[in-house]
Design a binder for these strands. Structure first.
Length: 792
DNA sequence: AGGGACATGTTTTTT
DNA sequence: ACATGTCCCT
């Protein structure tokens, strides 16, 4: 084996060769984090300190897990497939499959993705006659997921008011519905696995005895439940090797808790904290720019990146009059970079929100520059694919009402809303699934439903012995989906995707190492492997642990059928998030999507107050700091060239917005920046006229307002002002004239409700009021815009 | 059941 | 601007 530790720098070397004790590795952007993680695993095994069996390595994305496995495989001759390397959800799924009985799940339990979950919730609420205007299904979904991620079951949630009580009630009903249907949502995978271990001491002891080394990637992104899960697995004696970067924590909005890093340090009494600060990616000016910016955040664990590369090019800054002019500049600059020999895929255009891509795409098309947009619908999320999967799910588990509702009348077979309602009523009455309730529905509805039941039964019978790809192909055909899309004018792409689903099934079978004719719906027997999936008996005793036929999932992953495995795969790994592959193309994506990637040249666009930092971030605690970290992530993606741009006006949501440049410019060093347009000092703008050419419109005129077009219901917008920094968007003179407010006055706001004015500032169109709302806390509002009414 | 009018929402996203 | 959802009509 080649020398594992060769070419590691001293910090990396130290991290890789730490003893089996809790460790926190603060890995800066571009510091060789993944390399350290993988080399650590290889080193532990090589030194005999661990075996592939005793290691558990967890990531957030399938991509990261795959990379870890393949690079590890390349580093040493071991079969990584049997190892416990995967995402939190993937590993929990694996554990639940192995111990489904102890977890209280049916063997063929299926996984609801976000869309499935929402439709399950809507169906639930409909059945219970809940007003979905008062209790929006999306909010309930958020409430449920949030509670689960805090480790809270309905009984654990604090009931503060009636509104809350209803949500808790619905949460409980939702869990019951899922249980009845044999499905689990994403958060449930984690919570159920956590509870499985927490409530089953022998099982917990088994896994604790086994996973002596737990490695966690992107630790800053873990949520409370994931942290608790790790803690449970670690027990008293096992070592967690956590790698992360608090400065790159950008997922607080989905529950990530950076505080876990500090908690980990304290609760595990971490003795080994190593900072990887040597950066191998960016030139000096770029790194200095990033360091300078992030220094404005408080409560950092503290880190400063350095590089041996020279200063390199300065960071170029461009101020455009409009968003299309900004795009024009970028396209010209890209043209020049390409002419200098830079590959197109080494160039990235980053933006804060997806809506910004349109103008840029438009300009790229006109300029004839190939590009790829990341984000958007993924393969397994496509309508036709989800339909086909729903049929497969019904074959596997007739009680899956989510799948049932999806396809009971697709393709259309004369089963209308009325019939489905009748069926749902019957199902509720007999407390059974919709499929099981079909015999109770009488009349014409009963007949048509009966023929659907026969169809599914026929599909189930005829696919009993078929392989997975055959099953998929058969399902697509018999369901009528193929025929339906053949008849559609724009169905060609969808047909191709259905064919692609058959290919995906073939690929899955081969990846899993099954024989191609392994029946899709029986648990495959491999030579030497036993298939008894339980190792814990009903009364909690572990029976087979020491037996020669040990059914450790790591040795025998076949605890589910190929079909169940494929369906899990489809839920857990929704497929590529990338547009058409193919030719060398410029890369377009959000800053979030760029995390973990690197490019020779990076354009960070739309650096305007309200956009980046995003205006909504002001509503959240520490929102601005997260935006700053986001900016930090964006900057550190660049290897050689970095461009920052912003526009004075921009078309957004059909209206022209006038923005000032992002406050982040005031937080960057002046030495590393090169302004391609004259730098206008902050404040000059508010004084009145900027002498900048191309400044065509009035600051406070509203694009489209009064310009004819829509009558009557023109929609108003609130400018919410954070940190007392005025956002000049959507100002409106007429309104300001009406303003005659005083401090202490009771006011009413259409969105935030009742409140009291606590402070006033500015005058005219610039007037702002601070209002303490009863339900929404204290906010600064631009009087020119906010629909604030005096209440007396 | 399917289509047109009308309303509504629009930060970021993985599993 | 634009996409998606809802309602109501045929």
């Amino acid at each position: 084996m080649p020398e594992l530790l060769a070419n590691l720098n001293p910090e990396q070397h130290a991290a890789v060769t730490l003893p089996n004790e809790p460790a926190l590795i603060l890995a800066g952007a571009g510091s060789g984090k993944t390399r350290v993680l993988i080399t650590r695993i290889a080193w532990l095994i090589q030194q005999g300190l661990a075996s592939p069996m005793t290691i558990l390595a967890v990531t957030f994305t399938n991509k990261a897990a795959r990379e870890m496995m393949s690079r590890l495989q390349a580093m040493m001759p071991i079969d990584t497939r049997g190892m416990w390397i995967g995402t939190f959800h993937g590993l929990c799924n694996r554990m639940l499959r192995a111990h489904y009985r102890d977890a209280g799940l049916p063997q063929t339990f299926q996984i609801l993705d976000t869309a499935d979950q929402l439709s399950a919730i809507k169906r639930l609420m409909k059945g219970l006659n809940v007003d979905d205007e008062k209790y929006p299904p999306k909010n309930l979904q958020y409430f449920i997921n949030n509670a689960k991620e805090q480790g809270l079951r309905p009984k654990d949630v604090d009931v503060t008011d009636n509104f809350n009580r209803k949500f808790v009630e619905l949460y409980e009903a939702y869990d019951q519905q899922c249980q009845r249907e044999g499905v689990v949502d994403f958060a449930e995978l984690l919570l159920r696995c956590y509870e499985l271990l927490a409530h089953n001491p022998p099982l917990r002891a088994h896994y604790q005895a086994r996973f002596r080394d737990i490695l966690v990637d992107e630790f800053q992104d873990t949520n409370k439940l994931q942290y608790a899960w790790l803690k449970l697995l670690a027990g008293e004696g096992n070592a967690i090797f956590a790698v992360g970067d608090d400065d790159q924590s950008i997922y607080a909005f989905r529950g990530a808790n950076v505080g876990n890093m500090r908690d980990f340090e304290n609760e595990f009494r971490v003795k080994h904290m190593i900072k990887l600060e040597q950066n191998y990616r960016s030139h000096g000016h770029i790194l200095d720019t990033a360091n300078h910016l992030i220094a404005h955040n408080s409560r950092r664990l503290g880190k400063n990146l350095r590089t041996d590369a020279g200063h390199g090019e300065p960071v170029r800054v461009y101020e455009a009059a409009t968003d299309s002019q900004e795009a024009g500049f970028i396209v010209e600059e890209i043209r020049a970079l390409i002419a200098q020999g830079m590959a197109r895929h080494e160039i990235a255009i980053l933006y804060r929100s997806n809506a910004q891509s349109r103008t840029i795409e438009h300009t790229l098309v006109n300029g004839g520059i190939p590009y790829k947009v990341y984000g958007g619908l993924r393969f397994f999320e496509r309508q036709e694919v989800k339909h086909a999967l729903a049929y497969l799910r019904l074959i596997d588990n007739p009680n899956d009402d989510t799948a049932f509702s999806r396809v009971v009348n697709f393709p259309a077979r004369g089963i209308g809303a009325r019939s489905i309602e009748q069926l749902a009523d019957a199902a509720r009455l007999y407390n059974c699934s919709m499929a099981a309730a079909i015999p109770y529905v009488t009349g014409k509805a009963g007949t048509t439903l009966g023929s659907f039941a026969n169809l599914v039964a026929k599909m189930r019978a005829e696919t009993a012995q078929l392989s997975l790809p055959e099953t998929v192909e058969y399902t697509v055909r018999l369901s009528g989906l193929a025929e339906f899309y053949q008849g559609e004018r724009e169905g060609q792409d969808r047909l191709e995707n259905l064919q692609e689903l058959v290919n995906a099934a073939t690929a899955f079978v081969s990846e899993q190492g099954y024989g191609m004719d392994t029946p899709a719906r029986s648990i495959p027997l491999r030579p030497g492997a036993s298939n008894a999936p339980e190792i814990v008996s009903q009364d909690g005793e572990i029976e087979v642990l020491d037996a020669p036929t040990l059914t450790d999932p790591a040795q025998n992953p076949d605890v589910m059928t190929p079909l169940a495995g494929f369906l899990s795969h489809a839920s857990l790994e929704a497929g590529d998030n990338q547009a058409q592959a193919g030719q060398d193309a410029v890369q377009l994506m959000t800053v979030h999507a760029a995390k973990g990637l690197e490019f020779s040249a990076v354009f960070i666009t739309g650096l305007e107050e309200g956009l980046f930092p995003h205006e909504n971030s002001a509503m959240e605690a520490d929102g601005l700091e997260e935006e700053r970290r986001l900016m930090y992530v964006a900057i550190t993606r660049a290897k050689e060239r970095l461009y920052l741009s912003f526009a004075q006006s921009r078309l957004l949501h059909g209206q022209t917005r006038y923005n000032v440049r992002s406050r982040f410019f005031d937080e960057l060093p002046t030495e590393t920046l090169k302004w391609l347009t004259p730098k206008v000092e902050a404040g000059a703008r508010w004084g009145g006229r900027s002498d900048n050419a191309g400044w065509g419109r009035d600051w406070f005129s509203r694009g489209g307002n009064g310009g004819g077009g829509n009558s009557g219901g023109s929609r108003e917008r609130d400018a919410y002002v954070a940190d007392k920094t005025p956002l000049p968007n959507f100002a409106n003179e007429q309104r300001a004239a009406e303003a005659g407010f005083r401090v202490g006055q009771d006011v009413f706001h259409t969105k935030f409700g009742e409140g009291k004015i606590t402070a006033l500032e500015g005058s005219g169109t610039d007037a702002k009021a601070q209002v303490r709302f009863k339900r929404h806390g204290e906010k600064w509002l631009a009087l020119a815009v906010a629909k604030l009414q005096a209440v007396d």
